[in-house]
Simulated scan of single mutants.
Amino acid sequence: MSKTLWGECLAEFFGTFILIFIGVGTVAAMVTADISMSFWELSIAWGIAVMIAIYVVGSISGGHINPAVTIGLGVWGGFDKRKIPHYIASQVIGAFAGAAVVYGLFRNAIINFENTNEIVRSTESGWASAGIFSTYPKPYLSTMEALFVEIAITAFLMIVIFAVTDKKNGAAPTAGLPAVAIGLTIAICGISFGPLTGFAMNPARDLGPRIFMMISGWETNVIGPQLYGLIVPIFGPIIGAVLGGGIYKKLIAPYFPVAKQESMDKDYKKVS
């Protein structure tokens, strides 16, 4: 591994660590300390976590901090596909490490919460405390319905990511503001659709903590009903990111004034 790629992977590790440290830490505080917090405030915390992570590591690795984003950029954004496995591994490990640190800091609080509510980690009741770290669907949602939710909101996120970072988009923000737009998009998706699936939108954000929980007492129960944790928060965001990237590149970007002019210039050169 080259020194440059190593630095990029380290950046993705720290960026995803920051995401989990702030996001899961907020959920842990809300659940175990019985802090009065609305879903709006919780969603904003996750959005701020993403924004901070991008500010910290974005100039090194691009601040993907999300395997779905990395894959979407690999398919539609010209990102070097050879780096994808390295980025994803770094992101999952970073999320695992973030969950481990949050658990270490809240361990006694989580145990007290479980004892008070008679929660046994290896049983269905364990989902109540496991939900601090990973996402679970509402009982009235089928696996397919939950999958569609994750596809839709991640596709929307990917469209925004492309839009705010596209130099051909005259409306794109500058001077570090794309990170704010991306963070706000995640917060808005959380407010709108988070109550349905927990708005994973990020395979690493969900898988890393879930792996940690599997070896911390929750065992395979942490996967959730009908193998939920191995399907919805992993494949939903990936499909959504590829779909969103395609929508942006094929249905939006070609109609920017600059893009239309470049297309006309190419046609002119062919004729001449």
Rank of each mutant, 00 (worst) to 15 (best):
Y87F: 12
G170E: 12
E145S: 13
F193D: 05
W76D: 04
V101Q: 03
V92N: 01
K83W: 09
A172R: 03
I161M: 10
A130C: 08
I88G: 04
F162R: 03
A163C: 10
V101W: 10
G94P: 00
G126Y: 08
R82K: 14
T135D: 01
R107W: 14
A179S: 05
A171E: 14
I119M: 04
V164W: 03
F148W: 09
Q91D: 09
W76I: 01
F162T: 01
R107Y: 15
I110A: 10
E145H: 05
V101C: 06
I132W: 02
A187S: 08
F96A: 05
V160G: 00
T116A: 13
Q91A: 07
S122H: 15
I188S: 15
V102E: 14
G94Y: 07
I84D: 08
K168R: 15
L105K: 05
I161L: 13
A128N: 07
S125L: 05
P139F: 04
A128V: 06
K167H: 12
G126E: 09
T123L: 12
T154I: 08
K81S: 13
L157N: 04
A95F: 09
I132H: 04
E150K: 05
G170P: 00
A172F: 06
F79Q: 09
T165E: 08
Y140F: 14
F106L: 11
S90A: 15
L141S: 01
L184Y: 02
D166S: 13
F106A: 11
Y140R: 02
G98M: 11
L184Q: 00
A172G: 04
P85K: 15
I191R: 05
L157H: 03
A171S: 15
S129I: 08
W127C: 03
V120N: 10
R121I: 10
M158A: 12
I151N: 02
P137R: 02
Y140I: 12
G176H: 13
A171Q: 15
L184K: 01
A89G: 07
G94H: 06
I159W: 00
F162Q: 05
E150N: 05
A179K: 00
F113D: 04
I186C: 03
Y87E: 03
A152P: 01
F162C: 05
I188K: 07
T165D: 09
V92T: 11
P85S: 12
G77C: 08
A152C: 09
L157S: 02
P85C: 10
A179H: 01
A171C: 14
R107I: 11
A152Q: 06
A179T: 01
G104R: 11
A175N: 12
F79V: 10
G183S: 05
S125W: 02
I161Y: 06
I182P: 04
D80R: 11
T135R: 06
T143K: 03
I88V: 11
I153F: 12
A99E: 02
F156R: 01
I153D: 09
N112E: 10
G78C: 11
F113E: 03
I93D: 05
R82E: 11
K168C: 07
G183H: 02
A181V: 06
